[in-house]
């Protein structure tokens, strides 16, 4: 059985430009897939299309089946039941994903109340638990804070806690660590890895950085100009890329990394 089945997904703008072109991919329950691409590759639009969140003016054709629900052409009402329960998303910039005028605890309580029908003390406990799950210190203080009062890394953990609140079957992470510092990024990647493993969730992990993708997923899809270029295990893509574009990507990444190797020889 497949959890996510994308077939022939095409995303066009109102004036007819094709941004995602005939993309197909499948993901089983508990499976992980990385989507690698540079700006303009259509990788982020693909993740938005999975939840029916495409920006106004863009249209999707083809088929996106998420846990048995057809997303392309689905009504907003239908999509609302899917979002959060079947799949949830973590974006690159946590500051824009969180409501700046609402305390963290209340934002986190919203999906818990809505989908898990919790109230009062139980709700409060669930919020604290959710914050502890993402390894946030002093969950009580964080719950009372506004998004701008906590650090970028902490905000991204809150966003992750919100995404996990309704125990979705699929976690979509769109460049979740790009805006974070290197040392915070390492912790965040490890956290995503652990939490997803514990919950046996599937992951669609989007990034421009091969090395980052390699930390979370074993299999990856390379995208360029809206098309799938190559798919395979991350190890194979890195060791023996078949397509020109993948080769260029790997060579560039290796070139930069090798600078670090030469110097760090003791």
């Amino acid at each position: 059985m497949t959890l996510l089945d994308i077939r022939g997904l095409t995303v066009r703008t109102a004036d007819g430009r094709t941004l995602v072109d005939d993309l197909s991919l499948t993901l089983g329950p508990g499976e992980r897939l990385g989507v690698i691409g540079e700006s303009g590759s259509g990788k982020s639009l693909t993740t938005l299309a999975v939840l029916g969140l495409l920006p106004e003016g863009m249209t999707a054709t083809g088929s996106v089946e998420l846990a048995g629900t057809q997303i392309v052409g689905a009504t907003e009402k239908r999509l609302t039941t899917v979002r959060g329960r079947d799949a949830a998303i973590v974006f690159q910039e946590p500051l824009t994903a969180l409501d700046p005028l609402m305390r963290v605890g209340r934002q986190l309580a919203e999906p818990l109340r809505g989908k898990r029908r919790l109230t009062g003390g139980a709700l409060k406990r669930a919020v604290a638990e959710a914050l502890e799950q993402v390894r946030l210190p002093e969950p009580d203080r964080i719950a009372r804070a506004f998004p701008h009062e906590i650090s970028g890394g902490q905000r991204q953990r809150v966003a992750l806690a919100m995404a996990l609140a309704c125990e979705p079957k699929l976690l979509i992470a769109d460049e979740p660590t790009t805006a974070l510092d290197v040392s915070v990024q390492a912790e965040m990647l490890a956290l995503i890895d652990t939490l997803v493993r514990e919950r046996e969730m599937a992951v669609l992990f989007v990034s421009h950085d091969l090395a980052v993708v390699a930390k979370v997923t074993d299999r990856a899809l390379v995208m360029k100009d809206g098309r799938a270029v190559e798919e395979g295990t991350v190890e194979r893509l890195v060791r023996a890329p078949r397509e020109e574009y993948t080769k260029a990507l790997v060579t560039s990444a290796r070139r930069l990394e090798s600078a670090l190797d030469l110097r760090s020889a003791p």
Binding site: V182, S183, Q185, A186, L189, D209, L210, A211, V212, A214, K215, V234, E235, V238, R239, V250, A253, R254, E257, L260, S264
Partner: peptide
């Protein structure tokens, strides 16, 4: 040291 160790590396 923590900075250096945090840099994600390509496999292989």
């Amino acid at each position: 040291r923590r900075l250096v160790d945090s840099v994600p590396r390509l496999p292989g």
